[in-house]
Nucleic acid binder design. Structure first.
Lengths: 237, 237
DNA sequence: CTTGGTCATTGATCTGAATCAAGAGACAAG
DNA sequence: CTTGTCTCTTGATTCAGATCAATGACCAAG
């Protein structure tokens, strides 16, 4: 529950050296703008379970994820949780309707983010049409992703949910340039359950079933796709 | 399945007279820009079931909904349907990842839309930061709405789903300036089911139960909130 | 007035996933 | 090595919602 970034600031590096720039909103910036951005952001390290921001909290910062994986989730008053997404390096976090965050974000493993104060970031993008268009593009992608997830949550079986999840997670990692046959799953079973609208038991059983049927192999920290075409078939229909 | 707008164009009216402008993206425009926009858009009437565009189709137009209600949905290969949203006057439709639509949109009742060719609209907004920011704002709202819906689909019971739906629908209508105690439901039970991730029977049974318990009254074409505070209680937790 | 169509409701039954309940590993702290 | 704490898995049972099956209400066409 601690918000680490108030107490735990790392030394600054330069945007021009940033490894995630090609995947990030800042890919749209030129040299001059990058140097300007250098003065806005601060690198911050988060430990597992550290929160970048919480639902209902005043929006004071935006974040660009540099390293690690984050969990984005909403809680119901009685404690039920829905994970609305997992963030990977290059993802931009914190955009919210006006003043308050509509979901919480915390670190799964160790995480590095680039933190931007809300106000100065807003000034920075205000009159930069190419950057605004880039943000638009990212949000359209995000929205389309959200709609796909609604289909999954509303209309798919447990087996289809798990299969789709594994594949779309693999594809996101692949876009960042990782291997494809072995799929690391840094999040726990409960996280997967809360993402897919299932219980932890059903997720566990479904993984076991997929392994028993010879589609995957369960490994510590992830899975291996033994018969990816059969997993694709499950995810497709 | 017919796309009516190729054959069924209405006579043009002016943006400055447009009733939905205060609710729409074009609220951000000044006099000169409005006159420019007049030349881009054409008003088009759709009949029930007419499609504005279909999933996978090339994006040739954007739409601003002027009158009526539309259904936005995605289909799985086997015919299962998830409605990702209902559009009301003022809503902007058609933004998609690059070239293709990611969902279908059709008319529930009779509908009037303002149709903009993709290319010229893109040129029009390209260098207008205030308009780009306005679009951004609308998309953040959309995304936040999508996330709320994920919580509903993934973590709520049938009764909670129906209660939340009725209230959020009422609130959207209220923002457009309609009455609040009686809630018109222009969409059918099957549409509500496909929106909430339920079957038509469960929706029907749930409405009946809410009526039996004295929370609502079922009327032709809608419902009346008899004990809205009890409905709110269901929707909240 | 009858016919056929669509849509909504209700009842009976079934089932996929939730819930309840143990274990089994993994691992850090003492 | 032991102990406690997690997380994951597996089994038994229950239950919310799906499925199957009529029936009723409404309405436009003949």
């Amino acid at each position: 529950m601690r918000t680490a970034w108030t107490t735990n600031e790392a030394n600054q590096l330069f945007c021009s050296d940033c490894a995630v720039r090609p995947f990030s909103f800042c890919a749209a910036l030129d040299e001059t703008e990058l140097r300007e951005l250098d003065h806005l952001g601060r690198r911050v390290h988060l430990l597992p379970r550290d929160m970048a921001f919480a639902q209902e909290e005043l929006t004071t910062s935006f974040f660009n994820l540099l390293e690690g994986v984050m969990r984005l989730y909403k809680l119901l008053p009685d404690g039920r949780r829905q994970i609305v997404g997992f963030a990977l390096p290059g993802d931009f976090l914190g955009l919210a309707t006006s003043t308050h965050h509509s979901f919480s974000a915390d670190a799964i493993g160790p995480v590095t983010v680039c933190r931007f104060p809300r106000a100065s970031f807003a000034l920075f993008i205000e009159d930069k049409p190419h950057l605004l268009r880039r943000m638009n593009e990212l949000m359209v992608r995000e929205l389309s992703y959200a709609q796909d997830h609604m289909v999954l949550l509303g209309r798919r079986s447990a087996e289809e949910k798990v299969a789709s999840f594994v594949l779309s997670w693999r594809d996101r990692l692949a876009r960042l340039g990782a291997a494809t046959k072995t799929v690391p799953l840094p999040m726990g079973r409960q996280d997967i359950a809360d993402f897919l609208g299932l219980t932890i038991e059903t997720v566990s059983r479904t993984f076991s079933k997929l392994e028993r049927d010879g589609l995957i192999e369960i490994m510590p920290g992830g899975i291996r796709l033994v018969a990816s075409e059969r997993v694709e078939a499950l995810a497709a229909a």
